[in-house]
């Protein structure tokens, strides 16, 4: 493994990302949505006493989930599609780089940006401490569990988006198909709430339910089955991505 290659490609990806207006637009809307969500979480606590902490309300909020569904398709749509369209893929793949180094570098670049988007929200709980009239204890464990969950969800959606981007040279197609796929993964997990499927199906749906995982992690329960699911699913999608770019060249 050549870490230098990964670092160089990663830097290039991030530079291009930050040189495009998309990055700033995304950051703007993301902070707007998370900030707004935090505000209504605080308001909810102001209205009446609740059984939840402010961060629990924050992470369970509808707006956060919708933003989560959109973010990765937009971040990953350029990854490979743009390289195919501009032809820079040819230049990239004729440099001494291995396929999976390219895949991994692009994946890490997207994740790094995602982490940067979430980073400011860490401050929210401290802000809450300051503005709260009565001192409130920090529930560190569950909050960090929530963030771990946010990261894992990002890992899965990023791998999915990357794979779809590797299939087409059209960014619009990439972003739309990614969005549909991400929504499908998300809403499959919600089916249990709407229907009452028989045992086995229910178990499978619950195993992949992002929503249920978030609930558990929000209570500070580290569900190792969920960890295995996100890690293995992401890994598998990245492996498929590598195979796709390999086959692109076979058929080139």
């Amino acid at each position: 493994m050549n870490f230098n290659t990964i670092r160089v490609i990663l830097q290039r990806e991030l530079r291009s990302l930050f040189l495009s207006p998309i990055a700033y637009m995304l950051a703007f809307f993301y902070l707007l949505i998370t900030g707004f969500t935090f505000m209504i979480s605080v308001q909810a606590l102001n209205e009446s006493p609740r059984d939840f902490t402010v961060m629990e309300i924050f992470f369970q909020n509808f707006f956060i989930w919708i933003a989560q569904l959109f973010i990765m398709p937009v971040l990953t749509m350029r990854s490979f599609s743009e390289e195919y369209r501009l032809g820079t893929f040819e230049g990239l793949m004729t440099a001494p780089v291995r396929d999976w180094e390219v895949v991994l570098a692009k994946y890490l670049a997207v994740l790094a940006f995602y982490v940067a988007l979430w980073a400011p929200t860490v401050l929210y709980q401290f802000i809450f401490q300051i503005v709260a009239v009565t001192p409130t204890p920090l529930s560190n464990g569950p909050v960090w569990c929530n963030y771990a969950m946010v990261l894992m969800m990002g890992m899965l959606y990023a791998a999915l988006g990357l794979m779809i981007s590797s299939l087409t040279h059209n960014q619009i197609v990439a972003v739309l198909v990614s969005l549909v796929s991400t929504c499908m993964v998300f809403f499959l997990g919600l089916l249990n709430f709407f229907f009452n499927p028989p045992g086995a199906i229910r178990d499978v749906l619950s195993y992949i339910s992002v929503f249920e995982h978030m609930e558990q992690f929000g209570q500070g329960i580290v569900n190792t089955r969920a960890l295995v699911f996100y890690a293995s699913a992401s890994f598998m999608l990245l492996l498929v991505t590598q195979k796709i770019i390999e086959s692109k060249r076979w058929r080139a």
Partner: peptide, 13 residues
């Protein structure tokens, strides 16, 4: 050192 036909470059750099 390979120079492809359609000269692909990262135009944002």
């Amino acid at each position: 050192g390979y120079m492809p036909e359609n000269v692909p470059l990262y135009t944002e750099l």
